[in-house]
Each structure stands twice: as C-alpha cells, then as structure tokens.
C-alpha cells in the first residue's frame, strides 16, 4: 500500500496532522454552510416557504435562472472553440490567447463590472450611441448577462484544454483518414472523449453565473423586481436588517453550491474508475 510509505508515518504525527486538518476544515469551511441553513430555518419551515414565495424573491430567482440559461450556451461555444483552437493547432499568438482568457479570473469582479459600465453606460462611447436609440443595457437585465459572460468565460476552456492536450489528436486523425468529415470527427470522437470535463466546466460556469456578486452589483442598480439577482437580493435584505429572509435566499445559493460539489465528486469518481478499468485491461 502506497500510503504507508514515505515520511510522516509515525502514528502520532499522522494522528496530529489529520486531526488538525479535519478540525480546521470543519470549523473554518463547513460551519459557515451549516450556519446558513440553521439561520434560514430558525423561524420555521412556514416562514421559509413564505419568504421564498415573496414576489421579489421569486423574481430574483427567475432572473438568476435567466442569466445562467443565456450565459451557459454562449460560454460553452466559446470554450469548445478556444480549446479546439489551442490544443489542435500551433500558431503565433497562441500563448497570448491563453493568457488573455485568464484575465477574468485575475481581475476583480468590481473592475469587470466597471469596464462594462464605462463602455455601455450612457456616458460610454457605445452606450451614448445606444442611448440615442433608447436602448439601455446597463442597469437592466442584458447588462447582468453581459458581465456574467465576462466573469465566467474561462471555466469551460480551462477544463477542456489540459484534457484535450493530454489526449492528443491521433484518434481524430485516424477518423479523418477513414473518410469522416471534420464535423463527424468532432461529434463522434472529440465530444465523447471530453464530455465529463465539458459537463464539469458547465457546472462551474453555472455555479459562478448564479452566484456572481461583485460584477453584477456595479451595473445592476439593484432595483427590486427588476435587476435584482439572488446574490444581490441577499445583500439588499441584509441591509434592510431582514436577516432571516437574507439567510433564506442565501440558503438557496448554498444549496446550489452543495449540488455543485456533489456533481464534481461524482464526475471525478467516474473518471478515476474509468482510468482504473483502462489500466486493468491494458
């Protein structure tokens, strides 16, 4: 067994390190989530349901879903195209392109929101042009979607690139040699090979799209019943000292986070099992 080898295997060292890690993780990472559900349910299930049925909360839920539903396909197409480009071809500027897509992860979401506000707000050069034609993108739902696409665009590509690089192109080239069209090769060889990474990329995109706060708060204006997403709704309720209601909305997003983690574990579990099977058959 590999795990009984190497340094740090003395029983007391083992026990100490594991205990410190577990206790810290539970107190520091897990407790906040448990706390959210405890506070959300402290006034009873009746209050919980009633809060969720509040028209403003319902609108926030629908708006959050709308943002995610539009963001996912856009970033899916971009992520797949970019991953195909940088893993299947060598070209000048490839490295630059790969650094560029890391920008949304490195930049503060508030700065991201501001960039869009400056361009598409009615003072910006595009925004003023649109304003003359009575089109308003900022402080309205299209703006929410635009900044969400910005902050979530690296996820799919980031998941696909290492995997597609590792898998190489031999299967696809074989398919082409056998007379398949490029589109057939992509659908029947590439897609099945990367489907779990693709799914994981989508799950991450979804989680971030539904939970984004900094970027949307710059361009939203947080108008109740109009531009208030769930994450913004949490803040608005907390500012009103309506703490339990804030935790009710927060619990929905916390639940989403738990679902995301479970999905991630399942995908990883499948992946390790597949690798083990391959090793056995090899």
């Amino acid at each position: 067994m590999q795990h009984s080898r190497g340094i740090g295997q003395t029983p007391w060292v083992r026990l100490t390190l594991i205990s410190v890690g577990v206790v810290f993780s539970v107190l520091f990472l897990l407790a906040p989530v448990v706390f959210i559900f405890q506070r959300a349910l402290e006034s009873g299930v009746g209050f919980y349901v009633q809060t969720l049925l509040d028209p403003y909360t319902r609108h926030a839920i629908m708006l959050t879903l709308l943002v995610a539903v539009v963001t996912i396909p856009v970033n899916l197409i971009f992520g797949v195209a970019l991953a195909w480009l940088v893993t299947r071809f060598e070209f000048t500027g490839r490295k630059v392109l790969m650094t560029l897509i890391d920008i949304p992860f490195a930049v503060s979401p508030v700065v991201a929101g501001l960039l869009y506000l400056l361009l598409y707000g009615n003072q910006g050069w595009i925004g003023s042009w649109l304003d003359d034609r009575d089109i308003q993108l900022m402080f309205a739902w299209p703006g929410l979607i635009m900044v969400t696409i910005f902050v979530t665009c690296p996820f799919v590509a980031r998941e696909l690139i290492p995997l597609m690089q590792q898998q190489g192109t031999s299967e696809e080239e074989a398919g082409l040699t056998l007379g398949a069209s490029g589109w057939q090769v992509f659908r029947h060889i590439t897609l099945p090979n990367v489907r779990w990474a693709l799914l994981y990329g989508v799950i991450l995109t979804n989680a971030r799209a539904m939970g984004e706060f900094g970027a949307v708060s710059v361009i939203s204006g947080s108008i109740r019943g109009q531009t208030n997403t769930l994450a913004l709704h949490v803040e608005l309720l907390a500012q009103d000292f309506n703490i339990v209601a804030a935790f009710v909305s927060a619990s929905l997003l916390a639940f989403l986070a738990l679902v995301t983690l479970v999905a991630k574990s399942l995908i990883e579990w499948r992946e390790t099992r597949r690798q083990q099977q391959e090793e056995q058959t090899a």
């Binding site: 993780s25 897990l30 906040p32 506070r39 989680a207 935790f247 927060a250 916390a254 986070a257 991630k264």
Partner: peptide, 22 residues
C-alpha cells in the same frame, strides 16, 4: 474532506460573506 476543500469556490461570495459576518 477532499470535496470540502472546493467549497469556497462553489459558494457564492455574497453567501460566504453574510455567513462569515454573522
């Protein structure tokens, strides 16, 4: 425990914020 490590990435920051502050 391994899954728990990813929780901060999965949890929306505003939700983490309100929970931590309370």
């Amino acid at each position: 425990l391994d899954g728990l490590v990813d929780l901060p990435f999965a949890l929306p920051t505003a939700v983490a914020g309100i929970a931590l502050s309370a």
